[in-house]
Simulated assay, not measured.
Amino acid sequence: MDANYIDSYYYPRFLDSQFPSPSFPGSPGGFPGSPGGFPGSPGGGQQAPTSPPPAFIPQQQTATPFAVDPGAISLCLFRNTYIWLRNGSSFWYYPIFVGPRSVAGFRWNGRFWTIFGIDTRRIVSFTCF
């Protein structure tokens, strides 16, 4: 399954209202950080975080053999969150939307935040700050 999997029902509808046509950061058109931002976020629009995540990597919590519950990860909305995936990858994440089987937000690539979505079934564990 693709690492950028996004819930095929909920997330495209969420994106369609925010990205009506192709646009680039800093240009009008609903990209995160432009007027409109993401729905349901504090202040009416959500931008990528303006600062890097913490400089440390937290110790992994006990992993579960089951998929991560969307209700549990929703407690991390709009907070720096460290995620461990089943494939061994791990990264800082800033979730802004939780669907029935997916999470959308911003992933830290080591230099800046990029928009990223993930299937909750691929997440082994997470911790938020």
Results as ranks from 00 to 15, higher is better:
Phe126Ile: 04
Thr127Trp: 01
Arg86Ile: 08
Pro58Val: 01
Thr81Ile: 07
Gly29Lys: 01
Trp84Asn: 03
Thr64Lys: 10
Ala63Tyr: 14
Ser102Met: 04
Gly71Gln: 07
Tyr11Trp: 04
Asn87Asp: 15
Phe116Asn: 09
Ala3Met: 12
Tyr5Ala: 13
Ile123Asn: 07
Gln59Ala: 14
Thr114Ala: 08
Tyr94Met: 05
Gly36Lys: 02
Gln61Asp: 12
Gly110Phe: 05
Pro35Leu: 01
Asn80Gly: 12
Gly40Arg: 04
Pro42Val: 10
Val103Met: 13
Gln60Asp: 10
Ser90Gly: 06
Ser27Thr: 14
Pro53Ile: 00
Gly44Lys: 03
Leu15Ser: 13
Gly30Asn: 03
Val124Arg: 08
Gly88Ile: 00
Pro49Ala: 01
Phe78Gln: 12
Tyr5Pro: 05
Ile118Tyr: 00
Ser125His: 10
Trp92Thr: 00
Ser34Phe: 10
Ala63Phe: 10
Ser21Thr: 11
Ala3Pro: 07
Pro100Cys: 05
Gly26Pro: 07
Phe14Trp: 07
Trp92Ile: 00
Pro49Gly: 05
Phe19Gln: 06
Pro20Trp: 02
Val68Pro: 09
Ile123Trp: 01
Pro58Gln: 01
Gly43Lys: 01
Ser21Lys: 10
Val103Asp: 05
Tyr82Leu: 01
Pro42Asp: 03
Phe78Glu: 09
Gly40Leu: 10
Val124Asp: 09
Thr62Trp: 03
Asp16Gly: 11
Phe116Met: 03
Val103Gln: 07
Pro25Asn: 00
Asn80Ser: 14
Ile115Gly: 12
Phe38Glu: 07
Pro32Ser: 06
Leu77Tyr: 12
Pro49Leu: 00
Ala3Ser: 07
Phe116Gln: 04
Tyr10Ser: 15
Gly30Val: 04
Ala3Gln: 09
Asp119Cys: 06
Ser34Trp: 04
Ile73Asp: 06
Asp7Ser: 14
Gly26Gln: 08
Tyr10Pro: 02
Ser125Phe: 04
Pro32Gly: 01
Ile57Arg: 13
Gly88Ala: 03
Asp2Thr: 12
Leu77Glu: 06
Ser34Pro: 01
Leu77Ala: 09
Phe19His: 15
Asp69Pro: 09
Thr64Pro: 07
Asn87Met: 05
Ser34Tyr: 04
Pro22Phe: 15
Cys128Phe: 14
Ile118Lys: 07
Tyr10Gln: 14
Trp108Ser: 02
Ile96Leu: 14
Phe31Tyr: 13
Leu75Trp: 13
Asp16Ser: 15
Leu77Val: 06
Pro70Val: 07
Pro49His: 05
Pro53Gln: 00
Pro35Ala: 00
Tyr9Lys: 14
Val68Leu: 12
Ile96Glu: 05
Gln47Leu: 04
Pro58Leu: 00
Phe97Leu: 14
Pro58Phe: 11
Pro52Trp: 00
Gln60Val: 14
